[in-house]
Amino acid sequence: MIELNPFVIFFAAIFTNNMIFSYFLGMCSFIGVSNEIPTSLGLGQAVTFVLTFTTILNYLIYHNILVPLGLEYLRFIVFIISIAAFVQLLEMVVERYFPNLYYALGIFLPLITVNCAILGVSLFMVIRDYTFLQSLGFGVGSGIGWTLAIVAMAGARQRIKRTKLPKGLEGPGITLIITGLMALAFIGFSGIVQIQ
């Protein structure tokens, strides 16, 4: 793996290697929740926050506990537990100290545990052998990229709600096709930076 500047990874994760448009991660909540801009923005922020911290957490766990003990094959279980535990903890802290934020985020917090993007970023980090700073850049960038995608989609869907569509195409069908168009647009960025 060639050494990449963490900032390069950060920007690549937002634009050229966007979680949704090039890796198809986090699609479930992307299609389910992208109805309105405010809720999408709230979910996006929550995802970015969780993504940043779980990436750090999983990096530390993987390199300080699993690798020395030779237990790399347990990473799926350990990652999913640490993500679930972190989300649970976050939920309690937010509820106790920031009740307003807690009501704003509502049911989104627990849903984040099963967001594929969170686990996906941790797994990519392991597969690509990122260093600590690279992982941090990748985690934050992926979160922001995901937020960008879901907010853009919510904007497009708010417009399309008033349009007459063929019956079978309403809801998920049109969302997928718009996503395809957006992904095409994002391919235009691919000249800037490329990570693999």
Partner: peptide, 18 residues
Amino acid sequence: MPPAAFFILGVIVWWARS
């Protein structure tokens, strides 16, 4: 490239639902 997957799945969902 990725967009094709979205288009094809979108059309399949459309067809199945109609």
